[in-house]
Nucleic acid binder design. Structure first.
Lengths: 209, 209
DNA sequence: GTTGAAATTAGTACGAA
DNA sequence: TTCGTACTAATTTCAAC
């Protein structure tokens, strides 16, 4: 099973935790940056591109894998070519107490490529890939609807995947002035059309079952 | 730039298109299946696992790359370890005529890991990774809000990524009885709590600007 | 599409800076 | 720690079958 959550009591480490093990320096990040673009590069070539010795590259490479900073290497496939040209997002509202059951059922659905727990109106978003639009219908009405943990769903189709970056590193971002902890976010930003949906706020709308 | 859309007039090939070039047989799919789990496996080991000769594996491997069925190899990183522990989904409503501009702006935002055009209430979903919750706020209110193409946004946070499969192959799915083209989807499925959101239907709700 | 042997490259170990 | 070198194992290429 491809479950990226670590087994600390059933939920993954909350996002935001950093550096439990290995302390990553700029050389480590440079290595990750090369590897995200070319996961099959040889360690020798990697060493050269990063500007370190081959031996050092081997050491760091292994450390990154052992530490879990690199979770795995994978090939990105053209899903259309592979016969799975239909992609859909299914937003699911889950009965919170039945969360474990929901996860177990998900694991049994190979069409599911990605699942994340979100704040907002729904509790989870799952991304599925199938070969035919009718399969989405079958999947949602037959499979998902039959999971007692599932309270409601909302499905949208993906018409085009405009961008997929392997991942992003802090080094990609332009340096931002470090904000002091007690300093709050700037309050003078014109909000207007922008809307943030917190977990409690959004969920309240669905609490009428 | 990491743009997975091919340049046929600015939009990628619509999902559902299959086999423009290479015809993929079951051996090709088996190769992809191995490569999705271990992108760094040697071709020799790959050949053994698939049950073909090395030379054959090299030929097919190269063909898959050249054809574009394998788009690239990449390392999956633990974003938290790399200092980008905050993940958010931003649903964006775009002024359709300004779509090109929106894409151009997206390309200039390294925080964006994924962007897909969807049916439903919004027009696009983007996934961003940053190191701090406040950066999401800055990103949405400062960067996105200043793009004229952006009409409205809705932001949710990802609390946990429960599952990420490298991709899914048709061979993963259990064989389904092939439905004849004129046959429609079964109409006797109890719908109830399930909801599909088509592009037109959902968008009508936002057409009040 | 397969096998096997040559050339190249990868991975490891270890002493020196 | 990191580097450089030398040594061993494995991989890729390319030939003939």
């Amino acid at each position: 099973m491809s479950d990226i959550s670590r087994d600390h009591g059933g939920r993954g480490a909350p996002p935001g935790r950093i550096g439990i093990g290995l302390e990553l320096d700029s050389t480590h990040l440079k290595i990750l940056e090369v590897l995200r673009e070319n996961g099959r590069i040889s360690v020798a070539a990697l060493a050269e591109r990063v500007g370190i010795s081959r031996a050092n590259a081997y050491t760091r490479f292994e450390a990154l894998r052992a530490d879990g900073a690199i979770k795995r290497f994978t090939a990105e496939i053209d899903h259309g070519r592979a016969g799975l040209g239909i992609t859909a997002l299914i937003f699911v509202t889950v009965r919170q107490v039945m969360w474990r059951q929901f996860r177990a059922e998900l694991a049994r659905m190979p069409e599911v490529e990605y699942c994340a727990i979100t704040t907002g109106q729904h509790d989870a978003m799952i991304q599925v890939r199938v070969s035919d639009v009718s399969e989405v219908h079958t999947l949602v009405t037959d499979r998902l609807a039959n999971i007692p943990a599932v309270k409601a769903t909302e499905t949208v189709f993906i018409l085009d995947e405009v961008m997929r970056r392997p991942y992003v590193l802090p080094s990609d971002q332009r340096p931002r002035p470090r904000r002091q902890p007690q300093e709050s976010a700037p309050a003078d930003v014109p909000l207007g059309k922008m809307r943030f949906v917190g977990a409690a706020e959004g969920r309240a709308a669905l609490r009428k079952d």
